[in-house]
Design a protein around this nucleic acid. Sequence first.
DNA 1: TAGATTGTTAATCGATTAACAATC
DNA 2: TAGATTGTTAATCGATTAACAATC
Lengths: 214, 214
Amino acid sequence: MQTEQTKMPASVVRRLPKYLTHTQRLRRESVAWVSSMELAEALGLTSSTVRQDLSHIDFCGVSKRGYSTAGLATSLAEALGADREVCVVVVGAGNLGRALVLHDEFARQGFKVCGVFDADSDVVGEKVGRLLVQGMDRLPETVCGKDVDVGIIAVPAKAAQEVADHLILSGVRGILNMTAAHVVAPDKVAVVDARIVASLQELSYAIKTQGART
Amino acid sequence: MQTEQTKMPASVVRRLPKYLTHTQRLRRESVAWVSSMELAEALGLTSSTVRQDLSHIDFCGVSKRGYSTAGLATSLAEALGADREVCVVVVGAGNLGRALVLHDEFARQGFKVCGVFDADSDVVGEKVGRLLVQGMDRLPETVCGKDVDVGIIAVPAKAAQEVADHLILSGVRGILNMTAAHVVAPDKVAVVDARIVASLQELSYAIKTQGART
DNA sequence: TAGATTGTTAATCGATTAACAATC
DNA sequence: TAGATTGTTAATCGATTAACAATC
């Protein structure tokens, strides 16, 4: 059981969203209890890994019954910081950027898109959902004024670092990088890569080696 | 140096796209040689990890000079299967699906979108770029007829498994899952999660614990 | 040549799995 | 109660890092 001061291992943090998503679904289906074995089965893990992972959050299971889905969902959300609204901005109003602004799943999981920006003055002023595309010069005031924690980079790869630098100067504390480029940031700004093309390349490798010995 | 029969560790495969992207960029910038230290520096790794990783591909560096960017890019592409065109289909013609169909980066890295599908008959027939949205019943013939290796799931999370089952039956060998739901597939079909929302939740955790001891 | 950098072996570190006492 | 399931400790496994001989 985790005291608020220590960080969980990254490997554990990366699995927590899966537990959360699945537990929320069980709740919607009115399932009240779930065991480590059932979670493992559903998510392709071992029950041992599940119990180890859940021992990091501030929540206890019950012998012979497992974990209450209500309590588990709440604790997981709290552990991840998914119990509060997180404001994000999207930089890049191309196809991908627009899709992210309009992505329903974000709002449903507590991520609110508070602004969309583009360097191209031709698209500045266009409407994306309820938002207007703004010029990059407006980024700092939006980040400060609306308490934006996260910036999403959805521009061509070659502009990724430049956009990251803008976001960092504007004061975001986390960056979601949708490009294939590596982005450098100071320690105080967390960077996570979404790696869409890289994921396809992983698949390409997996397909190529299907049948080869492990 | 890797013989074609053994698979590389997943941890290595996940880093190869980063080496490839960076090396391609160096080539564009007319940089002919790169050392393991330079690669490590640029990508946030150690030079030891870089040398270990590159020892898995069929390519040798040169003492005192490092790796030829031309040779490295070619070998990495070959190792990943990125030297041939991979046909993909996108299932889901919502905002995200459409954005992926139109995503320039795919074509540039050798992924060709050969079809886009949706279960909603209202959007079937609409145009996305040069493609028409097709009904789900057309999926099997497209996958077979056009030798499609990969299906991308870009539908609401609750329909993810159903779409995965369609793709599997149609004969794809890999699935890129853009939803938060876990997707189950037989061993012969590789699944990679893009985890956009999960990545935001990772960031949310990182932000929440910024300043906490590691 | 001297010095820099590779490829590889050995050491360390961390993550996963197994095992089991505690418990409801 | 008996049996199932947790939380945790110990064992295993794999990934990363360090070290260094070989080499250009």
